[in-house]
């Protein structure tokens, strides 16, 4: 706690880097092998910069949740170290976790308690939470996620979306330096997703670092400043989202009633990874003037309805990195 308490007490969270290292989460060679011998996380070196909205991506079973559980001190790493807010986990759970709000693998609630009583219980579990402000903080957290009207209902009567909101409210009971949100928009309707995203942006603008795991790539692309991609327990890549997306090349898309001929001509023109889907032919654009490519198509008698480049999305980067995707399916 030494580093933390020497920080000026009135330093606004949004003003520049905090005392101590700039990384809020830092792991070194973090590894978890479960008792069955299964390697869930393999030599993970993760660095989450302070103040970032960090997207944590990976297919199901890639080790994201195991990583999050190790960061939260729920699972002991087999080897390697994890530091959260500058302190080693799981040893420093008592000082670190009160400053961390977490939503792990969906919400878990006491069905026989009301929404409000659920939050009161989670708040009383935190020995650093002031009981005198407990009710007020619970009311504020309920308000923030839009559950005030349903606060007295039993949690078992909540819809999945409402449970998700209540889980988020539990993460927001105290001012946090770090929020760890595992699939926070699961089960929410589009309106709810938008609200959560704007909540995440708002929290981030207050200076809270947000560590967000999701399988929805457009979600990550919309809200995250940084991202990391995991596959089969290993970290594939991490960095600012803009750089990650730039790493993947755009896609040339040709719409035509003659997809077979078009694919042949495009291959001749040097296009790689050609995929035919009904009247769409897509692939990596060749290194030459695309006008020439189009002219070649037309002169070969291919009727072209549409011809254009699709900007590379994070999804393309993701697919390219994890090696799961189009050329397999085609």
């Amino acid at each position: 706690m030494a580093e933390l308490s020497t920080a000026e007490p009135d330093t606004g969270p949004a003003t520049g880097p905090e005392a101590g290292p700039d990384t809020v989460i830092a792991t070194r060679a973090l590894t978890k092998r479960f008792r069955g011998g299964q390697l869930a996380v393999d030599g993970l070196d993760l660095a989450v910069p302070a103040g970032s909205v960090f997207g944590f991506l990976g297919p199901n079973g890639s080790g994201k949740t195991t990583t999050i559980r190790m960061l939260m001190g729920l699972i002991e790493p087999t080897s390697g170290t994890a530091r959260v807010l500058g302190q080693a986990m799981p040893r420093a759970t008592r000082t670190v976790l009160p400053q961390v709000g977490a939503l792990i693998e969906g919400p878990a609630l006491y069905g026989f308690l009301s929404g409000r009583d659920n939050l009161l219980r989670y708040d009383s579990a935190d020995p650093t939470a002031d009981p005198r402000t407990r009710r007020a903080r619970v009311a504020a957290a309920l308000d923030r996620v839009g559950l005030t009207a349903a606060a007295s209902k039993k949690a078992k009567a909540y819809s999945l979306g409402m449970k998700q909101r209540l889980g988020l409210a539990a993460a927001l009971l105290q001012p946090r330096r770090l929020l760890v949100l595992d699939e926070p928009t699961n089960g929410l309707d589009p309106q709810g997703m938008r609200e959560i995203r704007s909540l995440v942006r708002e929290l981030a603008s207050d200076g809270t670092t947000v560590f967000l795991s999701s399988h929805l790539l457009d979600e990550i692309e919309q809200v995250c400043s940084h991202a990391a991609v995991m596959a089969r327990g290993r970290l594939i890549i991490q960095g600012p989202v803009a750089e990650l997306a730039a790493g993947a090349r755009g896609l040339l898309v040709v719409t035509t009633p003659d997809p077979g001929d078009a694919a042949r001509v495009l291959k001749e023109q040097g296009m790689a990874d050609v995929v035919v889907e009904e009247d769409r032919v897509t692939g990596e654009p060749p290194d030459r003037d695309l006008a020439e490519v189009n002219a070649a198509l037309v002169s070969a008698g291919v009727r072209v309805r549409g011809f254009g480049l699709e900007r590379a999305s994070l999804e393309d980067a993701f697919v390219a990195l994890t090696g799961e995707g189009f050329d397999v399916a085609g």
Partner: peptide, 9 residues
């Protein structure tokens, strides 16, 4: 997990 992350200890 939420009690322990709270952290209940």
């Amino acid at each position: 997990r939420y009690l322990l992350v709270a952290p209940a200890g």
